[in-house]
Amino acid sequence: MAEEIKKKGAEITHDKVHVWPYLVRLEFLCSILVVVGLTAWSIVIDAPLEEAANPTKTPNPSKAPWYFLGLQDILVYFDPWFAGVVAPVLIIVGLMLIPYLDVNPKGNGYYTYTERKTAIWVYSFGFLVLWIALIIMGVFLRGPGWNLFMPWQYWDPHKVVALTSVDLPYAFGVRDYWMACLFGGVVVLGYFAVGTAAYMFLERKAIKSVGIVRMLIKVNLYLIMIGIVVKIVLRLGFNIKYIWVTPWFNV
């Protein structure tokens, strides 16, 4: 370790420059540009101020601040305990775990796609699609009743959308409540069990170098992320409301 640091130090020092003036002047220039830009923007565009708060007058649609609209959109497909509480916690914890789960030593401190394809795909998908794309959709396409409207469509507050979705066990012909509960549980837990097993099998050579705990956490975070997409597809494509209905929570 000591040697490693020494080597690193030697490598880094070979082309060093003084922070004053080389970095400070860049920071100064950048600050001027940003402050000028911010001032110009603030002169031209006013911050919104609507009528005074009125608890008896609920606007339709009621939207969270734009940066949370991805989560609000997930509410269409999941109950609030997941979309509003568990998903954000998983995002935060999952992000914190990234450096400890990604043990690929390559691509440390430089841009590369070829040396870490999976990592780049997973992060970009999560950030650009599940976070940014959903925000854009939430800001521009979600209208009254949280229905989807194309930009050229009139936001009709009385738009009627048929609620025809059913739960997954029902779609498979299971009518008894407890049987349906069991069926849903088997599907959800089975998804994670089979997914984990399949991944561990495919990556069996890497288990030793990655470590079993690491790999288990990683694959299950992947499965949750994929599961969210699966649920969206099931709802939009197959009108499935819940997969697993229990007396305590629904998934």
Binding site: L49, E50, T58, P59, A64, W81, A83, V85
Partner: peptide
């Protein structure tokens, strides 16, 4: 403390109702 503010925060904090 306008409509935008109150309802955006209502939507946001409503989530806490569903905390397991």
């Amino acid at each position: 403390w306008d409509q935008l503010a109150m309802w955006a925060v209502t939507v946001g904090t409503n989530m806490a109702r569903a905390t397991p």
